[in-house]
């Protein structure tokens, strides 16, 4: 008998199912009075530093249908490129910006929507700066393990061109699936980031 490693195996993932909202956003499905407000709905307050932006989009399945029961989480740096996390050793992040958000896709339109700030640049492992980005995590019925992707900004062409992560995408025609186009909505810069789970223009997903 060989020796055995003492490490444990990670608990295997299972789908979040169609009723993920009961646990993640109970008030949103009218389970009220259990906790005051759903976590992750609000990212910015009056004292948050940085440029206010809207991030929105929809999630599509392999037939082009809009998915209306997905849950989207985002994680991002503050305006100076610092994460509000005890694991952040480079400095102290903006105390008025948690950097994490969670939204369901709308049950009718399928749209998700965050009001947040545009993140600053953070370094890759070798010190080169990555382009500004938001980490996006998608779970839903039919998704057995959460999908990680990244939102990059369409108006950061120079930074995107030198981003060491984007440079790792071998098939360059897939790179635009990570770039959110900028528009204006009620005077707010708005970035649209649609996620295509399968098929034509399938979004790049990461094994991180």
């Amino acid at each position: 008998m060989f020796q055995k490693l003492t490490t444990l195996k990670e608990s295997p993932s299972q789908t979040a199912g169609p009723y993920v909202h009961i646990g993640a956003t109970p008030n949103w499905v009218e389970i009220t009075g259990v906790w005051d407000e759903d976590l992750g709905l609000v990212l910015v307050g009056p004292d948050t530093k940085g440029e206010r932006i809207i991030v929105k989009g929809r999630v599509f399945d392999g037939s082009g249908n809009v998915i209306k029961d997905a849950l989207i989480e985002i994680w991002q740096a503050d305006a100076d490129g610092l994460y509000n996390s005890p694991e952040e050793k480079r400095g102290k992040a903006d105390p008025n910006f948690v950097g994490w958000g969670r939204q369901p896709t709308d049950g009718t339109t399928g749209e998700y929507r965050f009001e947040t700030i545009k993140p600053g640049r953070v370094p890759y492992k070798d010190g080169r700066l990555m382009a500004p980005h938001i980490t996006v995590w998608v779970v839903a019925r039919g998704i057995n393990i959460g999908l990680h992707t990244r939102l990059y900004f369409g108006d950061e062409e120079a930074a995107n061109a030198e981003c060491p992560v984007l440079a790792r995408i071998e098939h360059k025609f897939r790179l635009p699936t990570l770039i959110a186009a900028r528009s204006e909505e009620n005077g707010m810069p708005t970035y649209t980031f649609d996620i295509r789970l399968q098929g034509e223009n399938e979004t790049v997903f990461f094994d991180i």
């Binding site: 789908t15 039919g142 789970l197 399968q198 098929g199 094994d207």
Partner: peptide, 28 residues
């Protein structure tokens, strides 16, 4: 599990050794 058929990516995942974006996370 039928719903997985149209909700599963067909391309392989892009492997990425963690950067600080993944090695940090929200604390509650």
């Amino acid at each position: 599990y039928k719903t997985s058929v149209l909700r599963s990516p067909q391309y392989p995942l892009l492997s990425l050794d963690n950067t600080i974006s993944e090695m940090t996370g929200p604390r509650f």
